[in-house]
Design a protein around this nucleic acid. Sequence first.
DNA 1: TTTAGGG
DNA 2: CCCTAAA
Length: 655
Amino acid sequence: MDAAVGIEDNDEGKVEDCGIEKSSSVLSSPKQIANPVVYKLVRVEGDGRLVPATDDEVIRVEDFLEDENSEMHVVADTGQSVGCISIERSSSGRLRVECSKGVSQSDTAESDLGKLNARLQMLQEVKQEEKLRLACGSPGHFYVNTDIQCSADKFPVADGMIQSDISRQEVVPSLAPSVNDSHSNQSVSIGQCSRPSEGLVESGSSTSAVYSTFCPDFSMLKEEICLDKLSIRELHELFKVTFGRETTVKDKQWLKRRIAMSLTNSCDVSTTTFIVRDNKLVKKCEKESCGNANAVLSVDATAGEMDVNSKDPLPAEGSGIDDNQAVSGKRLRNHDMEPELGNKDLQTGEKAAKRVRKPTKRYIEELSENEPRDHNQRFLSSNKNTGIGHFAPNSYMRPSRNMFSEGRTVFTRLDSLGGSGIQVPCVSRVRRSRPRKNIMSLMVHPCGTGNAIKLVDKALGVHGSQADSESRDETLTTPAECQQPSFTESGQDEQCPILPTIELRQEFRLKKADPTTHISDDKMVTVPTSKGGMRRKHHRAWTLVEVMKLVEGVSRCGAGRWSEIKRLAFASYSYRTSVDLKDKWRNLLKASFAQAPADEGINSRKHGTVPIPEQILVRVRELAELNSQVPPNLSSSKLTEGARSMREDKSAGYL
DNA sequence: TTTAGGG
DNA sequence: CCCTAAA
């Protein structure tokens, strides 16, 4: 519903990387440690005010961190960066990650490191997918800086030193972004790590205190804040988290825009407790009183700057424009690279987005979840501003309880459709939930950037062979280029100019979700159950990346050790269970042994799907044979059977 | 809880 | 994908 961002108390927009900060003695000085860079996760409301992250949001992030993965590489950047990342678990069990410039202690906590690694892995995954997408030549023009050139193995997280004992966090839930790669040009990153002004976030201050109350220990990694710095894989992950589904889109720009779009949409939400003024986090006394202080969101290099006054619930087109323009005038440094045109477009897009965006059912679900925690106020006002209130009244859901992570939550849906008011129990997997605005919100991003998404979408629509927007991002990939599962960063950020358009793909997607049916855009279908109830059947197309990861996992752990594979390679794919992996592998096996040479015409292909690259199938076959696990009926002579069964088998070869 | 298989 | 038996 709104963008949450890590607020940094930096000195007047100083865009310095915490990791790179070489200037003077700051790095190792005691003082530095005393005043570490402190990030707090908050929500950026439409008027620029900030709201502390909710429990839910915190947890979302936590999920990321909790995945364990031993394969991660924490690659220290070549020299320079001295930052450290510290992760600690608070009494409440939440993870806190802090990045400080100070030299960290060598007291590295193994478990924490593991989590960090998991996080890195996740980023890698995202990047990989991005690469794939790029390889597919998805057109798109990026208005945001795309200076994310970190190789897959070399993440922006440098010097992953873990410090498990930081007391200052007790008072100020802080979170420091992971240290950035000092080499990449991160001029535009949103969550720049910068030196906190002294006393801004001092422990014990009233502000901090209040803050703490709201989100005791929230923390997040910097990557989530800096869109521009995110690698494709990271973006993918964000995308996934944001929209609740995977994407194979490799176009960085597209991803960014898309994600940014969400942020944009959330920009017009108000209700805050704090506002950012002059880079300082100020508790909001009165919406009006504080409003005049043209709050400058330090996040995102002022790109997200908004007039605090504009607390207009439903920003009319006019007002919206004004605000945006004002912003554009102020945005500067970090958007140097951003074409002028880009700004305009972005703003326009933002405008459009604000008007158009409609929450999906999933969206509603999430909101519902947050509601109880939000002390009403925010939620209510959010409704007004975000347009949440616009969605069909018949899809009001009330969670009977809250669950996190993968657990299924049983909701009681009050389906007032037709005035029946029937309560329809439904099951949903939280993780599969659609818009993860929580995460989106974690990323500070220029609101105007949202438009970019639209543009890219349009471009895709023009160039893409598949008209289906829904399945396209899911499965449209070019086999040839997706073949190599390498995790290296392609870094090919071609910027294809595209024509501006008002078309908003996401809009379509949202519209497609018919509130009256039980089929959502993410292919969740309700099927009758023997018990007379209904159960949700989710379908989440397997992406190429996932398949590749699966294959790799199998090769590494061996087929059958699904839970392990799940843990290692799918740590960040919470919606893929070990059983899913097993099933998929089974399918892959079938496919690999059944896929006919090259008779698959485009016609025979399922709409919007792409065949699994032969290379992968070959690999699957190898592994299968290696493990002497040959598909039961295929081992003999499936290829000679009728075309009917052939087709069936081949279908397994699609993502 | 995790695997293996059936549906 | 889901469900379930079996380990």
